[in-house]
């Protein structure tokens, strides 16, 4: 099922008197239960299209349709609501809150997403997701005591705890060693399939491509 449609999206920056065109009309449709990988050289615009799709920056033109609603026409507050309840994010760095335990990171995300769960349900859901990502044994640990791979697992758990429809992953394995990269990608793949997520991933690592259902290559602001 097509849940996310990017239509003719452009992005340009004014650099003095020169207008730099980063995206020159990108069209992309994401399908439920699939991982779409965006690849391409640096400066091709792959991270820009991901951040625009995720509502983290505005497009200069075009439309982004999520469940039929045009996100480019939404207010900042509505985009925030969509981000908190419908999207999940995994970045190159885990970006965990340093003073919260693993369990509390997920608890915070449930609060931010304003889920209707009571405390008991929240605890059960956190426990279930931590088991799913293999981190239930470290639920009381603080981020500084976790390894890079463990941090990324917690970041993935935080990204899916509130049952988002779309998972945005910006180079999620870039800071990991080969063994951890494989583990994290396997996890993203497994979760996308089992939870029916729609995943858009930016990567420059060819080893990660076998995990993607579709690979889109970008160059100079267009899909090639």
């Amino acid at each position: 099922m097509e849940t996310f449609i990017i239509e003719d999206v452009t992005k340009s920056f004014q650099n003095g008197e020169v207008e730099a065109k980063i995206l020159k009309g990108v069209n992309l449709t994401l399908t439920e239960g699939e991982i779409t990988a965006l690849v391409g050289p640096s400066g091709s615009g792959k991270s820009t299209i991901l951040t625009i799709a995720a509502g983290l920056q505005k497009a200069s033109g075009g439309q982004i349709l999520f469940d039929g609603d045009d996100m480019t026409a939404m207010s900042q507050e509505n985009i925030r609501k969509v981000r908190s309840s419908e999207f999940g994010f995994v970045f190159q760095s885990s970006h965990l809150v340093p003073f919260l335990t693993v369990e509390e990171q997920l608890d915070l995300m449930l609060d931010v997403a304003e889920t209707k769960m009571d405390k008991k349900q929240q605890k059960e859901e956190i426990s279930r997701i931590l088991k799913l990502v293999g981190m239930d044994h470290r639920k009381d640990a603080y981020p500084p005591s976790l390894s890079g791979g463990e941090k990324q697992r917690v970041a993935i758990a935080r990204a899916i705890i509130h049952k988002p429809k779309i998972l945005f992953a910006d180079e999620p394995t870039a800071s990991l060693d080969t063994k951890r990269k494989k583990e994290v990608m396997e996890l993203i793949h497994e979760l996308t399939k089992s939870l029916g997520l729609t995943t858009l991933m930016v990567t420059h690592d060819d080893e990660m491509l076998p995990y993607a259902d579709r690979v889109i290559t970008m160059r100079d602001g267009v899909i090639v």
Partner: peptide
């Protein structure tokens, strides 16, 4: 700043 940015990215309200 980084932490606040991420919290904003995941949808936390500025007022929070």
């Amino acid at each position: 700043i980084g932490l606040y940015g991420i919290l904003k990215a995941i949808g936390m309200k500025t007022i929070s």
